[in-house]
Nucleic acid binder design. Structure first.
Lengths: 121, 121
DNA sequence: CTGTATCCAACAGGATACTG
DNA sequence: CAGTATCCTGTTGGATACAG
Protein backbone atom coordinates (compact mmCIF):
# COMPACT_ATOMS: atom_id res chain seq x y z
CA UNK A 1 0.00 0.00 0.00
CA UNK A 2 1.24 3.45 -0.85
CA UNK A 3 2.28 5.86 1.87
CA UNK A 4 -0.21 8.50 0.81
CA UNK A 5 -3.04 6.01 1.19
CA UNK A 6 -1.79 4.77 4.54
CA UNK A 7 -1.59 8.30 5.85
CA UNK A 8 -5.10 9.10 4.64
CA UNK A 9 -6.44 6.03 6.40
CA UNK A 10 -5.61 7.74 9.68
CA UNK A 11 -7.86 10.64 8.77
CA UNK A 12 -11.06 9.73 6.93
CA UNK A 13 -12.40 7.66 4.03
CA UNK A 14 -12.85 10.69 1.82
CA UNK A 15 -9.16 11.52 2.12
CA UNK A 16 -8.39 7.92 1.21
CA UNK A 17 -10.40 8.37 -1.95
CA UNK A 18 -8.53 11.57 -2.72
CA UNK A 19 -5.22 9.82 -2.11
CA UNK A 20 -6.16 7.13 -4.62
CA UNK A 21 -8.01 9.14 -7.26
CA UNK A 22 -6.62 12.65 -6.80
CA UNK A 23 -3.93 14.11 -9.01
CA UNK A 24 -4.00 15.27 -12.59
CA UNK A 25 -5.06 12.78 -15.28
CA UNK A 26 -5.97 9.95 -12.93
CA UNK A 27 -9.76 10.19 -13.10
CA UNK A 28 -9.70 10.99 -16.78
CA UNK A 29 -7.55 7.93 -17.34
CA UNK A 30 -9.99 5.75 -15.43
CA UNK A 31 -12.86 7.20 -17.40
CA UNK A 32 -11.17 6.56 -20.75
CA UNK A 33 -10.57 2.97 -19.71
CA UNK A 34 -14.24 2.42 -18.91
CA UNK A 35 -14.85 1.59 -22.59
CA UNK A 36 -12.50 -1.37 -22.39
CA UNK A 37 -8.76 -2.11 -22.29
CA UNK A 38 -6.38 0.27 -24.03
CA UNK A 39 -2.71 0.14 -24.90
CA UNK A 40 -0.33 2.66 -23.40
CA UNK A 41 -0.11 4.77 -26.53
CA UNK A 42 -3.84 4.73 -27.16
CA UNK A 43 -4.41 5.78 -23.58
CA UNK A 44 -1.94 8.63 -23.79
CA UNK A 45 -3.59 10.02 -26.91
CA UNK A 46 -7.05 9.57 -25.41
CA UNK A 47 -6.33 11.22 -22.07
CA UNK A 48 -4.86 14.42 -23.42
CA UNK A 49 -1.61 16.37 -23.18
CA UNK A 50 -0.03 14.16 -20.53
CA UNK A 51 3.64 13.23 -20.64
CA UNK A 52 4.63 9.57 -20.81
CA UNK A 53 6.44 9.88 -17.53
CA UNK A 54 3.43 11.22 -15.67
CA UNK A 55 0.97 8.82 -17.26
CA UNK A 56 3.23 5.92 -16.36
CA UNK A 57 3.47 7.00 -12.76
CA UNK A 58 -0.27 7.52 -12.42
CA UNK A 59 -0.94 4.12 -13.96
CA UNK A 60 1.52 2.44 -11.59
CA UNK A 61 -0.19 4.14 -8.70
CA UNK A 62 -3.63 3.07 -9.88
CA UNK A 63 -2.32 -0.45 -10.35
CA UNK A 64 -0.90 -0.56 -6.82
CA UNK A 65 -4.21 0.68 -5.47
CA UNK A 66 -6.17 -2.00 -7.31
CA UNK A 67 -7.94 0.25 -9.78
CA UNK A 68 -6.35 -0.96 -13.01
CA UNK A 69 -4.68 -4.14 -14.18
CA UNK A 70 -1.57 -3.97 -16.36
CA UNK A 71 -0.94 -6.77 -18.82
CA UNK A 72 2.32 -7.19 -20.70
CA UNK A 73 2.29 -9.23 -23.89
CA UNK A 74 5.73 -10.72 -24.62
CA UNK A 75 5.89 -9.52 -28.19
CA UNK A 76 8.09 -7.37 -30.36
CA UNK A 77 7.30 -4.54 -30.48
CA UNK A 78 6.07 -4.68 -26.89
CA UNK A 79 2.36 -4.41 -26.18
CA UNK A 80 0.95 -3.41 -22.81
CA UNK A 81 -2.71 -3.01 -22.03
CA UNK A 82 -4.52 -1.47 -19.12
CA UNK A 83 -8.01 -2.34 -17.99
CA UNK A 84 -10.22 -1.49 -15.04
CA UNK A 85 -10.87 -3.73 -12.06
CA UNK A 86 -14.31 -3.72 -10.47
CA UNK A 87 -13.06 -0.95 -8.20
CA UNK A 88 -12.00 0.93 -11.30
CA UNK A 89 -15.37 0.55 -12.97
CA UNK A 90 -17.09 1.88 -9.87
CA UNK A 91 -14.64 4.77 -9.69
CA UNK A 92 -15.33 5.62 -13.32
CA UNK A 93 -18.94 6.24 -12.38
CA UNK A 94 -17.86 8.78 -9.80
CA UNK A 95 -15.51 10.38 -12.33
CA UNK A 96 -18.41 10.89 -14.71
CA UNK A 97 -20.47 12.48 -11.95
CA UNK A 98 -17.63 14.85 -11.16
CA UNK A 99 -17.40 15.77 -14.83
CA UNK A 100 -21.12 16.47 -15.01
CA UNK A 101 -20.91 18.48 -11.82
CA UNK A 102 -18.18 20.71 -13.27
CA UNK A 103 -20.17 21.15 -16.48
CA UNK A 104 -23.15 22.23 -14.46
CA UNK A 105 -21.53 24.54 -11.93
CA UNK A 106 -18.09 25.55 -13.17
CA UNK A 107 -18.28 25.70 -16.94
CA UNK A 108 -21.83 25.44 -18.21
CA UNK A 109 -21.85 24.42 -21.85
CA UNK A 110 -24.36 23.12 -24.33
CA UNK A 111 -22.16 20.99 -26.54
CA UNK A 112 -19.10 18.95 -25.69
CA UNK A 113 -20.54 17.40 -22.57
CA UNK A 114 -18.84 14.52 -20.87
CA UNK A 115 -22.05 12.59 -21.32
CA UNK A 116 -21.73 12.87 -25.08
CA UNK A 117 -18.00 12.28 -25.35
CA UNK A 118 -18.01 8.86 -23.77
CA UNK A 119 -14.89 6.81 -23.15
CA UNK A 120 -12.35 6.12 -25.87
CA UNK A 121 -13.57 3.68 -28.47
CA UNK B 1 -11.25 32.04 -12.38
CA UNK B 2 -8.13 30.25 -11.18
CA UNK B 3 -5.42 29.27 -13.64
CA UNK B 4 -5.65 25.58 -12.79
CA UNK B 5 -9.34 25.60 -13.68
CA UNK B 6 -8.78 27.53 -16.88
CA UNK B 7 -6.11 25.08 -17.97
CA UNK B 8 -8.34 22.11 -17.20
CA UNK B 9 -11.13 23.62 -19.29
CA UNK B 10 -8.94 23.04 -22.33
CA UNK B 11 -8.81 19.33 -21.59
CA UNK B 12 -12.02 17.82 -20.25
CA UNK B 13 -14.77 18.34 -17.67
CA UNK B 14 -13.39 15.65 -15.38
CA UNK B 15 -10.09 17.48 -15.12
CA UNK B 16 -12.01 20.64 -14.31
CA UNK B 17 -13.63 18.81 -11.43
CA UNK B 18 -10.25 17.60 -10.24
CA UNK B 19 -8.88 21.14 -10.50
CA UNK B 20 -11.70 22.41 -8.28
CA UNK B 21 -12.08 19.55 -5.82
CA UNK B 22 -8.68 17.86 -5.90
CA UNK B 23 -6.02 18.43 -3.28
CA UNK B 24 -5.80 17.33 0.31
CA UNK B 25 -8.57 18.36 2.69
CA UNK B 26 -10.82 19.99 0.12
CA UNK B 27 -13.48 17.30 -0.22
CA UNK B 28 -13.40 16.53 3.49
CA UNK B 29 -13.91 20.23 4.15
CA UNK B 30 -16.90 20.34 1.83
CA UNK B 31 -18.34 17.26 3.46
CA UNK B 32 -17.95 18.68 6.98
CA UNK B 33 -19.74 21.83 5.84
CA UNK B 34 -22.70 19.85 4.53
CA UNK B 35 -24.20 19.87 8.02
CA UNK B 36 -24.41 23.65 7.99
CA UNK B 37 -22.12 26.69 8.37
CA UNK B 38 -19.02 26.38 10.54
CA UNK B 39 -16.52 28.87 11.90
CA UNK B 40 -12.89 28.64 10.87
CA UNK B 41 -11.74 27.03 14.11
CA UNK B 42 -14.62 24.57 14.20
CA UNK B 43 -13.86 23.59 10.65
CA UNK B 44 -10.18 23.08 11.34
CA UNK B 45 -10.91 20.79 14.27
CA UNK B 46 -13.56 18.91 12.30
CA UNK B 47 -11.49 18.32 9.17
CA UNK B 48 -8.47 16.84 10.87
CA UNK B 49 -4.75 17.54 11.16
CA UNK B 50 -4.69 20.37 8.63
CA UNK B 51 -2.61 23.48 9.20
CA UNK B 52 -4.31 26.86 9.32
CA UNK B 53 -2.31 27.99 6.32
CA UNK B 54 -3.42 25.10 4.15
CA UNK B 55 -7.04 25.20 5.27
CA UNK B 56 -7.14 28.92 4.55
CA UNK B 57 -5.78 28.44 1.07
CA UNK B 58 -8.15 25.61 0.26
CA UNK B 59 -11.10 27.64 1.52
CA UNK B 60 -10.07 30.65 -0.57
CA UNK B 61 -9.82 28.40 -3.58
CA UNK B 62 -13.23 26.86 -2.94
CA UNK B 63 -14.66 30.34 -2.49
CA UNK B 64 -13.21 31.54 -5.79
CA UNK B 65 -14.64 28.48 -7.52
CA UNK B 66 -18.11 29.10 -6.09
CA UNK B 67 -18.26 26.11 -3.78
CA UNK B 68 -18.32 27.91 -0.43
CA UNK B 69 -19.35 31.33 0.80
CA UNK B 70 -17.25 33.16 3.37
CA UNK B 71 -18.97 35.52 5.77
CA UNK B 72 -17.10 37.90 8.06
CA UNK B 73 -18.92 39.27 11.10
CA UNK B 74 -17.53 42.64 12.22
CA UNK B 75 -17.08 41.64 15.83
CA UNK B 76 -14.31 41.35 18.40
CA UNK B 77 -13.06 38.70 18.57
CA UNK B 78 -13.55 38.16 14.85
CA UNK B 79 -15.99 35.56 13.62
CA UNK B 80 -15.89 34.06 10.15
CA UNK B 81 -18.22 31.37 8.89
CA UNK B 82 -18.14 29.18 5.84
CA UNK B 83 -21.13 27.59 4.19
CA UNK B 84 -21.81 25.63 1.04
CA UNK B 85 -23.36 27.03 -2.11
CA UNK B 86 -25.67 24.84 -4.15
CA UNK B 87 -22.62 23.70 -6.09
CA UNK B 88 -21.00 22.84 -2.78
CA UNK B 89 -23.96 20.81 -1.63
CA UNK B 90 -23.93 18.82 -4.85
CA UNK B 91 -20.20 18.31 -4.55
CA UNK B 92 -20.63 17.03 -0.99
CA UNK B 93 -22.76 14.21 -2.38
CA UNK B 94 -19.93 13.17 -4.67
CA UNK B 95 -17.47 13.38 -1.76
CA UNK B 96 -19.60 10.97 0.23
CA UNK B 97 -19.69 8.57 -2.70
CA UNK B 98 -15.92 8.70 -2.98
CA UNK B 99 -15.64 7.98 0.74
CA UNK B 100 -17.95 5.00 0.44
CA UNK B 101 -16.02 3.79 -2.59
CA UNK B 102 -12.75 3.85 -0.65
CA UNK B 103 -14.35 2.04 2.27
CA UNK B 104 -15.58 -0.63 -0.07
CA UNK B 105 -12.50 -1.16 -2.24
CA UNK B 106 -9.48 0.30 -0.48
CA UNK B 107 -10.04 -0.12 3.24
CA UNK B 108 -13.01 -2.33 3.98
CA UNK B 109 -14.21 -1.77 7.52
CA UNK B 110 -17.26 -2.64 9.55
CA UNK B 111 -17.40 0.26 11.97
CA UNK B 112 -16.39 3.88 11.47
CA UNK B 113 -18.00 4.26 8.07
CA UNK B 114 -18.38 7.63 6.45
CA UNK B 115 -22.09 6.95 6.36
CA UNK B 116 -22.20 6.74 10.12
CA UNK B 117 -19.89 9.62 10.91
CA UNK B 118 -21.93 12.26 9.17
CA UNK B 119 -20.87 15.89 8.86
CA UNK B 120 -19.78 17.92 11.84
CA UNK B 121 -22.61 18.79 14.17
C1' DC C 1 6.21 0.62 -28.67
C1' DT C 2 6.68 1.31 -23.86
C1' DG C 3 8.76 2.99 -21.10
C1' DT C 4 13.23 4.98 -17.82
C1' DA C 5 16.83 8.63 -16.37
C1' DT C 6 17.92 13.07 -15.64
C1' DC C 7 17.26 17.80 -14.95
C1' DC C 8 14.42 21.51 -13.86
C1' DA C 9 10.69 24.86 -12.28
C1' DA C 10 6.50 25.21 -9.85
C1' DC C 11 3.62 23.98 -6.24
C1' DA C 12 1.89 21.81 -1.81
C1' DG C 13 1.83 21.62 2.79
C1' DG C 14 3.76 21.68 7.67
C1' DA C 15 6.10 24.42 11.57
C1' DT C 16 6.76 28.43 13.77
C1' DA C 17 6.27 33.08 14.87
C1' DC C 18 3.55 36.95 14.54
C1' DT C 19 -0.70 40.43 13.82
C1' DG C 20 -5.26 43.03 14.17
C1' DC D 1 -10.27 34.27 16.78
C1' DA D 2 -8.78 34.07 12.28
C1' DG D 3 -5.69 34.37 9.93
C1' DT D 4 -0.61 36.03 7.58
C1' DA D 5 4.64 35.86 6.91
C1' DT D 6 8.51 33.24 6.51
C1' DC D 7 11.16 29.23 5.95
C1' DC D 8 11.58 24.66 4.85
C1' DT D 9 11.08 19.96 2.71
C1' DG D 10 8.88 16.86 -0.36
C1' DT D 11 6.17 16.15 -4.39
C1' DT D 12 4.46 17.03 -9.09
C1' DG D 13 4.86 17.27 -13.75
C1' DG D 14 7.00 18.72 -18.21
C1' DA D 15 11.12 18.32 -21.49
C1' DT D 16 14.63 15.88 -23.31
C1' DA D 17 17.45 12.11 -24.17
C1' DC D 18 17.99 7.37 -24.07
C1' DA D 19 16.98 2.00 -23.62
C1' DG D 20 15.13 -2.74 -24.43
Amino acid sequence: MRDAVRRALEVCPIEVGVAVAGGDWKLTTVWKLSGGPLRFGELQRAVGPVSAKTLTRQLRSLETDGVVVRTVFPEVPPRVTYELTEAGRELAGIAVQLGRWSERFIAPVEASTVSEYGPAS
